[in-house]
């Protein structure tokens, strides 16, 4: 029925760069991103921006927990957990606009008399949302429109532009 193992039967959509630096220190999604990047054998993640073809930086991440359902007793029955990450990519010193925004939602069934247990269940869902967001980020990176190579003029002489996070 036309299905093939990813990367074996048909071409795998390549990333528009082969070396990159990930700038996401202090961000929850960093380790998930590194795990997904590690799956691509043709990609090397550098330890410093110098010499990296592309710099991917997690500009911001946000976790908001909002009431989704209230029962007729006026108590919360479900929370909606919304994880959002904003990722900025600079390829060959030229930033790709607009920034990539990834949003992942999970719903958490809640009850007030299990507050300790529900706290850990919530952490489990946040971790799952971050893993999901990391996969979406890497997948969408492959579809980025690579900005035109910088003009041959003085601009290209510019040293490797390191974006300020």
């Amino acid at each position: 029925c036309g299905f093939h193992l990813r990367g074996l039967g048909g071409p795998l959509k390549p990333l528009p760069f082969s070396t990159m630096y990930l700038e996401a220190s202090g961000k929850g999604i960093e380790s998930d991103l590194r795990t997904v990047f590690a799956r691509d054998p043709k990609l090397t993640v550098m330890s410093a921006p110098k010499g990296a073809q592309a710099v991917v930086s997690v500009v911001s991440e946000n976790q908001s927990k909002d009431i989704l359902t209230i029962n007729t007793g006026g108590r919360i029955n479900e929370y909606q957990l919304t994880y959002t990450a904003v990722v900025r990519t600079v390829i060959g010193g030229v930033p790709v606009d607009p920034d990539m925004v990834v949003t992942v939602r999970r719903s958490l069934n809640y009850s007030d008399n299990q507050v300790l247990g529900k706290q850990q269940e919530e952490d489990l869902l946040w971790a799952d949302a971050r893993r999901d967001a990391a996969e979406q980020v890497v997948r969408r990176l492959a579809y980025l429109k690579v900005p035109a190579a910088p003009l041959a003029g003085p601009a290209s002489v510019k040293p490797d532009a390191v974006p300020q996070p």
Partner: peptide, 10 residues
């Protein structure tokens, strides 16, 4: 601090 988790994909 134990409670039965609700079933979801995670």
């Amino acid at each position: 601090d134990t409670s039965l988790n609700d079933i979801n994909f995670a």
